[in-house]
Write a protein that binds this DNA or RNA. Structure first.
Lengths: 207, 207
DNA sequence: ATACAAACATACATGAATGATTGTAAATAT
DNA sequence: ATATTTACAATCATTCATGTATGTTTGTAT
């Protein structure tokens, strides 16, 4: 029964893959470790060997992927700061294109925002999303602050409102897309949405 | 112990209020009927008298409030169709102002979109939200179609993309606001967001 | 006044999920 | 070659929520 280290790592991965599927199908609280184990072709014992409990399985899934929020801003930072608003626009579109192709990321992301319960006293899993969102907001703020300093931010917008607006629209877009079962073209809608929004933030285009 | 009809209706309301609180604090699946009963000052027996099970409590909560999506479109329909885009703008802002004042609606709405799990095979509770969203999308489509026929829809947008864009942005705005613990001014951000978006949809303002 | 039904409370049975414990075969270290 | 640890499987006890069944009190109709 005892396997080599590579085998162990493989079963660990298989458990995570199975967990992503089961979580996606039944929601986190609706998924028992028994179901996950059965799907992965092991027993609960194997899961308890690799992970402390269900929460740790979720955490492991989360740490596997990068949130779109993080990716958008990283793109902007990576590509210089000549035109902050343009960078946000480009970054967002890039991220959407990548995410639209990656089914595993879609599943995990769906679990994070749809199959997980955000309550008043947050679970640590939900807390990570909140934290990532906050960080992303902070970075967005800085980028838009730069646009503001260069007088390229239209009169309709404040720095904070602009950052929130982008954050809300992007998260809402992804949430709706996943919730609707990907019933509309993500990149097409997203591109128009982000162009329209950022366009309205540019000086002279405000109204 | 037996109370009059008014007393019964009162306990029913108290159960629903307690349920909203408990669901909001612990999430739907994390809430037992025992907790709800204790909070309401009754026993589980009382809950089972008024409702079939936990799902029916949730359904009762849902049917109490109107989704913002529904309210926005109804506003537009109610106020004539001279300027469809303007009506959407006004309607959205109206709805935000009302929702920002009503704590109970906020709680129930938070339960619906954050404290509930959207899975692959949806629960009937989640299904209702999806359906309501779809209906709202259809109506939004019609409104924007009218704008399109009057040639007031900018070249950046298609009818479908515009409807999706508004839907995603509004839902995302509310979700972020609630998820962040109402950490930013909803009406202020929302007003700029919807003005910016709708502004970009108007002819001549597209880019 | 009596009979019945409404509006609950109380008690119990059931099942599911969890966490812990124990068993064990194979890999690895010595 | 032996000891030890790894990587699980199998079993078990406990908790916890649910659903149901039954009991009890009080309105209300006749």
């Amino acid at each position: 029964m005892r396997r080599t280290k590579e085998d162990a790592a493989k079963t660990r991965e298989e458990v995570l893959t199975a967990a992503a599927e089961i979580f996606y199908e039944n929601g986190v609280s609706g998924s028992s470790l028994e179901k996950i184990a059965k799907r992965a072709g092991v027993t609960r014992g194997a899961i308890y060997w690799h992970f402390k409990d269900k929460a740790e399985v979720l955490t492991a899934l989360h740490s596997e992927i990068r949130l779109p929020q993080e990716a958008i801003v990283d793109y902007a930072i990576e590509h210089g700061h000549d035109d902050p608003l343009g960078l946000i626009e480009q970054g967002a579109i890039e991220v959407l294109q990548i995410l639209a192709e990656d089914e595993h990321q879609q599943r995990v992301f769906a679990i994070m925002i749809l199959g997980c319960e955000f309550t008043e006293h947050l679970t640590d899993a939900a807390q990570r999303i909140v934290t990532a969102n906050d960080e992303m907001f902070g970075k967005l703020q800085k980028l838009i602050e730069m646009a503001h300093e260069r007088n390229t931010l239209g009169p309709l917008w404040t720095v904070d409102a602009a950052a929130r607006g982008i954050q809300c629209s992007m998260n809402g877009l992804l949430a709706e897309w996943l919730r609707s079962g990907k019933s509309f073209p993500l990149v097409d809608v997203g591109e128009r949405l982000i162009r329209g929004l950022v366009g309205s933030m540019r000086c002279g285009d405000s109204r």
